[in-house]
Amino acid sequence: MKALIQRVSEASVTVDHQVIGQIGPGLLALIGVEKDDGDAQIEKMLHKLLHYRIFSDDNGKMNLGLEASGGGLLLVSQFTLVADTAKGLRPGFSRGASPEHGRAVFDRLLSAARERLPETQSGQFGADMQVALINDGPVTFMIEV
């Protein structure tokens, strides 16, 4: 499982001209599910999303995780994150999960996140989504578990 995370001032997801997920300050996480991902990867990823120290403490240092910062979490499925881009000019998707498996893993991650952090929003799996954000910093990291 991969996540491209961005510390944001605000972020939203729109489908068919309707906002379906929106947060203020917090973390936007674009999630790519690989074919062998399961409960172990879900738990590791959720731990990283909630505790990765990219939010400023009272001294302006990146010492706080999302939970401690009180921010929101916006999870968006993004199949293209698992692409193999090492060779040629066309991405390969052999490591990616099937749509059924990807949806099941993403839904379990979303459910677990909502249990731990009530301010969790999401996009719509498999939909054509428009994601808007204001990257705070900018601060962006790629996480793989």
Rank of each mutant, 00 (worst) to 15 (best):
V139Y: 06
Q6W: 01
A29P: 01
E67K: 00
K48I: 00
D136Y: 10
L49V: 00
E115H: 14
N135G: 12
A3I: 08
T140W: 09
R114I: 06
L109D: 03
A127T: 06
L46V: 09
V19D: 10
A97V: 08
T14M: 01
G32V: 00
L73W: 02
F79I: 07
D107G: 10
L75A: 08
L133N: 10
H17V: 07
D37C: 03
E10R: 04
Q124E: 02
F93A: 04
L27Y: 07
H51C: 13
D37I: 02
R103D: 02
G123T: 03
R103G: 03
N63G: 00
V15I: 10
L73M: 13
E34I: 04
G65T: 05
A29M: 03
D84Q: 15
K48F: 08
L49T: 02
Q130F: 14
K44Q: 13
F141G: 05
V19L: 07
G21V: 01
G60F: 12
S122P: 07
L81C: 07
V33H: 01
V145F: 15
R7W: 11
L74P: 07
N135P: 13
A104E: 09
E144S: 12
F93P: 02
G60D: 14
Q121R: 12
G96Y: 02
L89V: 07
R53A: 12
S9P: 00
G123S: 06
S9C: 12
G123D: 02
Q130S: 13
T140Y: 09
I5E: 04
K48S: 14
